[in-house]
């Protein structure tokens, strides 16, 4: 599983970083980025799902291996 933060949508709520600090970081303006190129280890897949499903801006997406977005 891979995830990606859409920086144009992210408004710095920091929900992802709070729920999955192993997977996301935020900069000084609150904008989140996915760590490790968005790669999600199997053990952290549940946390990644939480981050996706708690983003109020719908800014985190799953990425298929081909780079195509997945809902």
């Amino acid at each position: 599983m891979r995830v990606r933060v859409n920086a144009d949508k992210c408004e710095g709520h920091n929900r992802c970083c709070a729920l999955a600090p192993e997977l996301f970081d935020v900069d000084d303006y609150g904008t989140a980025t996915a760590l490790n190129g968005g790669e999600v280890p199997v053990a952290l897949e549940a946390k990644a799902k939480l981050a996706v499903e708690n983003c109020p801006e719908y800014a985190i997406e799953y990425v298929r291996d081909g780079g195509e977005q997945d809902k």
């Binding site: 408004e11 709520h13 939480l50 499903e53 708690n54 983003c55 109020p56 801006e57 719908y58």
Partner: peptide, 12 residues
């Protein structure tokens, strides 16, 4: 588990 609340507002 799934809580996309907007208590702090949303957008810019």
């Amino acid at each position: 588990a799934k809580n996309r609340h907007i208590a702090f507002g949303i957008g810019s």
